[in-house]
Design a protein around this nucleic acid. Structure first.
Length: 568
RNA sequence: GUCCCCAUCGUCUAGAGGUCAGGACUCCGGCCUUUCAAGCCGGCAACACGGGUUCGAUUCCCGUUGGGGACGCCA
C-alpha cells in the first residue's frame, strides 16, 4: 500500500513571503490538492538571530490571502474560516519547539560514529575557504585521517565550543528528480556538513530531514537552489533509516534583468539608493532617515548585505528618499491592487503550463485556484527558468477585473480602499460611488488605479478648484471653434442647472439636444464640457462623468473654468 | 575555481522525427466612438551555433557558446 501524499511549505520567517516562496507554496498546495493529499505548513525558525514573530504572522497572512489553505500547521483564522491544526499529532510546527527530536537524531548519529564534534572556529574555516579559493581549489571539509573520536567527544562534553558534523559517505549519490530526472553528485564534491550549530540548534539540513520523516512528507517540491542540498538530505535519510520522499526542484524565477528574483532584492535596491543619497548629502540624508528609523540598525544593515530590514523600515526609506522599490513580496502585490486569484494564476504559469488548447486553438492559461487544484501536475512543470513579466501580470489583472460583475468589482475595490486608501471612499457616497466604480472597471488594470493620482478616476477625487487645465486640451476644445467651447459653456451650465433627473441618460440627451439645436456634432459639446470639468480631454462617458460629480460640483467647476481657466 | 541545471518570437510558453513552428503578453495598424478606456479585427517577431544519428531534425546524441544556480555554524 502506498504512502499517503503529504506536501509541505517550510518558510523561514526572516521576512515577508516573496514571489518565489509564494510560487513554491502554491505548487505544493496544488499538488496536494490534485493528489488528494495534505498540505502542511512548517516554520523553519532554527536561525535564532533572524527569525521573528512578526514575520511569521506576515507569512501566514499572505498565504491565507492567496487562498493557500494549509491542512496542518500553525492555526490561523482566515476570512473563510480557521486553517491549520494538528489532526495527525505530528506537530509542533515550529522547529524551535522540536529541538529534542533533532538532538535525538543527532545523538543516534554520534553513537554510531556517523557524526562527530569539530572545533574549528568560523574564522578559521573562513580562512581555509579563502585559501582554497585563492589556490583555485574547492574547499571540502572532511574528517582528518588521524581523528581521535574519544578525545573529541571528551572535549565536547567538557564544554569546549564545537559543532557536530555529519560523516558524509564517500560515495556518489544519485538523486531521482521528478522534474529534472536523474542527477548524480560525485563523492569528491560532498563534505562533512554541520548538523548541529555552536548554539546547539540543528542546521536546516538536519531539521528538514527529521521533520519531513516525522510529518510523513511524501513529496518535496522546492526551488532549484536546493538541488545541491539534496544529496545531503538523502545521505542523512539513509543514515537515519528514514523513507526517501519524491523530490522535484522548481525552476528559478528571474527579474526582468536576468538576475535571480530574491527576497533580498528590495534591500539591495534600497541599500544602493541609501548609499547614493549618503554620498551626496551625508548629514541631510541621515537626518531625514532618522525621523522614523533607528540609525544603528541602519548602519548595521548598510554594512552587511545579508541582513534584511523590516517592510516598514524599507517603506519609510522608500518614502523619505522618494524611491520605488521593486515589488517582490506578496504584500506588494496586494497593496498594488491585484486580486489574489490573479496572482495565483500568474504564479502558476511561472514554470507550469496546462498544455491544453481551447476550441480556437489558443493556449488555456487562465485558471481559477480551484481549477489549479484539479489540474496541476508535476509532469508539466518546465525545467527552464522564467522571468517575472509584470506586463503580463497586469494584463491578467485587467482582464480579470473587467470580467467581473459591476457589483463584484465594486466590492473588491472598496475592500482594497478600506485597507489602503480609506480617504478615497469618503469622497464618494451613494450612487456616485456606484457609478464611479462601474466607470472605473474597464479603465483599471488594478484595484489601485481608480484612486491613483494620475489615474482615470483622479478627476472625481480632486477638489473642485484643485485640478489643473491641460493647455493642449484647453487650446483645442475651449479656445478654438465657432462658437468656441468657452462660449458654449454658459448655455450648458444653464441647461444642466435645470435638468431633471441629473442622471447619465438624461444628461447625454440634454447635451445632445443642445448640440443638435446649434447644428453641431456631439464632440463639439462634450469635449469642452469635459475639459471644463476635469481639466483634460479624456474622462469616462460624458453622462457618467457628470453624474459621478453631481450637479453641484458640475456647476461649480463650470463657473471656475469660466472664471479661472487661462486662454492659450 | 569546482559541481549542477537550463536553452523555441523581446517575455511566458505549445511542440514529444515529417507542422505554413501554434497561443498569450508587449509593440504597431485598423474598426467602433462625444474623449479615454474596454471590445473586435489584423500585423511584426523565435527553433543559439557546430557536428553526428536518420530518407528527414526544433524534436534524439555529442561538443561549443550563452544564461542561471550551489559551493555557510542561512534557509
Amino acid at each position: 500500500m502506498s504512502e499517503p501524499v503529504v506536501t509541505r511549505f517550510a518558510p523561514s520567517p526572516t521576512g515577508h513571503l516573496h514571489v518565489g516562496g509564494a510560487r513554491t507554496a502554491l505548487f505544493n498546495w496544488a499538488l496536494a490538492r490534485q493528489l488528494g493529499g495534505r498540505f502542511l505548513l512548517r516554520i523553519e525558525d532554527t536561525d535564532q538571530a533572524r527569525s521573528s514573530a512578526d514575520a511569521v504572522r506576515g507569512i501566514l497572512e499572505d498565504l491565507a490571502w492567496l487562498g493557500l489553505d494549509w491542512d496542518e500547521g500553525p492555526e490561523f483564522e482566515t476570512a473563510t474560516g480557521p486553517v491549520g491544526g494538528d489532526e495527525r499529532g505530528v506537530g509542533p510546527f515550529f522547529q524551535s519547539e522540536r529541538k529534542d527530536r533533532y538532538d535525538a537524531a543527532i545523538d543516534s548519529l554520534i553513537e554510531r560514529d556517523l557524526a562527530y564534534p569539530a572545533f574549528e572556529s568560523p574564522e578559521e574555516l573562513d580562512a581555509l575557504r579563502r585559501e582554497a579559493r585563492a589556490a583555485k581549489r574547492n574547499f571540502r571539509y572532511r574528517r582528518a585521517d588521524g581523528f581521535d573520536r574519544d578525545a573529541a567527544l571528551r572535549r565536547a562534553r567538557d564544554g569546549e565550543p564545537h559543532v557536530m558534523r555529519f560523516r558524509m559517505p564517500e560515495e556518489e549519490i544519485e538523486v531521482e528528480d521528478r522534474i529534472l530526472g536523474q542527477i548524480s553528485f560525485g563523492e569528491d564534491q560532498l563534505d562533512d556538513f554541520v548538523v548541529r550549530k555552536r548554539d546547539g540548534f540543528p542546521t536546516y539540513h538536519l531539521a528538514v530531514v527529521v521533520d519531513d520523516e516525522a510529518m510523513g512528507v511524501s513529496h518535496v517540491l522546492r526551488g532549484q537552489e536546493h538541488l545541491g542540498n539534496t544529496p545531503r538530505h538523502v545521505a542523512l535519510q539513509r543514515a537515519l533509516g528514514y523513507r526517501e520522499p519524491v523530490y522535484a526542484h522548481l525552476p528559478v524565477i528571474f527579474n526582468p534583468d536576468g538576475s535571480k528574483m530574491s527576497k533580498r532584492d528590495k534591500d539591495k535596491a534600497a541599500r544602493l539608493a541609501v548609499r547614493e543619497a549618503l554620498a551626496e548629502d551625508e548629514d541631510g540624508t541621515r537626518a531625514r532617515l532618522a525621523e522614523d528609523l533607528d540609525l544603528s540598525v541602519l548602519d548595521g544593515w548598510l554594512a552587511d548585505k545579508k541582513t534584511q530590514l523590516s517592510g516598514g523600515d524599507l517603506g519609510s526609506i522608500e518614502q523619505r528618499l522618494g524611491l520605488e522599490l521593486p515589488g517582490i513580496d506578496v504584500e506588494d502585490f496586494r497593496r498594488g491592487g491585484y486580486l489574489p486569484e490573479v496572482v495565483v494564476n500568474f504564479l502558476a504559469l511561472l514554470g507550469w503550463s496546462s498544455g491544453r488548447k481551447d476550441a480556437e486553438g489558443k493556449d488555456v492559461e487562465r485558471f481559477a485556484p480551484s481549477e489549479l487544484a484539479k489540474e496541476f501536475n508535476l509532469e508539466r512543470v518546465g525545467r527552464g527558468n522564467a522571468k517575472f513579466d509584470r506586463a503580463k501580470l497586469l494584463a491578467f489583472s485587467q482582464e480579470t477585473l473587467g470580467g467581473q460583475s459591476d457589483a463584484a468589482f465594486q466590492a473588491a475595490w472598496e475592500g482594497w480602499c478600506t485597507r489602503y486608501e480609506p480617504e478615497a471612499l469618503r469622497c464618494l457616497e451613494g450612487s456616485a460611488r456606484d457609478r464611479f466604480a462601474t466607470a472605473m472597471k474597464p479603465r483599471s488594470r488594478t484595484l489601485a488605479e481608480p484612486t491613483a493620482p494620475d489615474g482615470p478616476g483622479a478627476f472625481a477625487l480632486v477638489g473642485d478648484d484643485a485640478y489643473g487645465f491641460d493647455p493642449k486640451a484647453v487650446g483645442k476644445f475651449l479656445d478654438k471653434g465657432e462658437p468656441s467651447g468657452r462660449q458654449l459653456l454658459p448655455e450648458l451650465r444653464d441647461t444642466l442647472a435645470e435638468l431633471e433627473p441629473f442622471e447619465p441618460e438624461a444628461i447625454e440627451a440634454a447635451m445632445g439636444a443642445v448640440a443638435e439645436a446649434r447644428g453641431l456634432g456631439m464632440g463639439k459639446v462634450a469635449q469642452p464640457l469635459r475639459v471644463a470639468l476635469t481639466g483634460r480631454a479624456a474622462s469616462p462617458a460624458l453622462g457618467d462623468t457628470l453624474a459621478i460629480l453631481g450637479r453641484e460640483r458640475v456647476l461649480r467647476r463650470i463657473e471656475r473654468c469660466l472664471a479661472d481657466c487661462p486662454t492659450t
